[in-house]
Design a protein around this nucleic acid. Sequence first.
DNA 1: TTGCTTGCAAATTTTTTGCAAAAAC
DNA 2: GTTTTTGCAAAAAATTTGCAAGCAA
Lengths: 154, 154
Amino acid sequence: MRRGPRKRTTRQLEQVFKALHGDHSHPIAHEIYRRVHKKLPRISLATVYRNLHTLVEEGKIRTLLLGDQVARYDPETREHDHFICERCGRVSDVFLKRARRIDLSPLARDGYVVTTHNLTVYGMCRVCAGRRRTSKPSRAARKPSVRTMAVIRG
Amino acid sequence: MRRGPRKRTTRQLEQVFKALHGDHSHPIAHEIYRRVHKKLPRISLATVYRNLHTLVEEGKIRTLLLGDQVARYDPETREHDHFICERCGRVSDVFLKRARRIDLSPLARDGYVVTTHNLTVYGMCRVCAGRRRTSKPSRAARKPSVRTMAVIRG
DNA sequence: TTGCTTGCAAATTTTTTGCAAAAAC
DNA sequence: GTTTTTGCAAAAAATTTGCAAGCAA
């Protein structure tokens, strides 16, 4: 999972990991920077990016590229899927049972060698489904760009 | 699917659509620009982007955000999935039978309202699976960034 | 000490925008 | 003729990189 020189334990690396550990909000790099900045006011965004990459290489966190062209980071490394609320923008972890997951055998029969797959579901989260037409959409985590309206987000 | 003033038919719009029509290679904007540029040497990249957006709004093509933070465009508007070859970078359309697709009912039971979902599969395409360890990976369509090694691309 | 890591600034990459001129209808 | 679209250049937004100085081992 890693090659090259062994990594050193720096305050910056530790804090970047701490900022993400146990969090299920799938923050983007700048949000993580904001969090770490409170502990280490001199840290730079570049260092946050570099440490996020380090953590990904070490398998401690994962990068999520869910379709808004901005990388999100997830400390949940177990296999799981994601649900994106089209109203509030929140990204939730979703654990579908293995048996309920996708049958990819037709691909294998077709000559493809499958290593992994990714499933992202779109719709309304529980909170927003409740509020249905009461309040107007809040763009919580992220601005849903004009484009994302008619997009296949993969 | 559209609002605002009705669109005018320009040579630029026509050529952008032609450049994509019937193509299954999922090109990025710059590749489309390159193609159209042969026909209309004075076209600008901005115009290509604007026309791609127009075509998406009209439902003639789709935007694919598959995880490399670069938008791809697909003239195939029927519901389908994608396979990304981790060796050559090629993106293939994949049509899995409805019955074989994902059972999302657990989500509904959990209070989520599902509108769409997206499935992307990773592995080796037929061509590369044949060549297995003969030739070294070519980064055909796109550079697989270092990051994409340990990423959940969704 | 050695050499990986940081902070800062500048560079990259992809996409969007402002605006006057050109093209559609 | 009026209104949309284009081309060009500049702006934005996200991420990466060069480099001297700082720190971990």
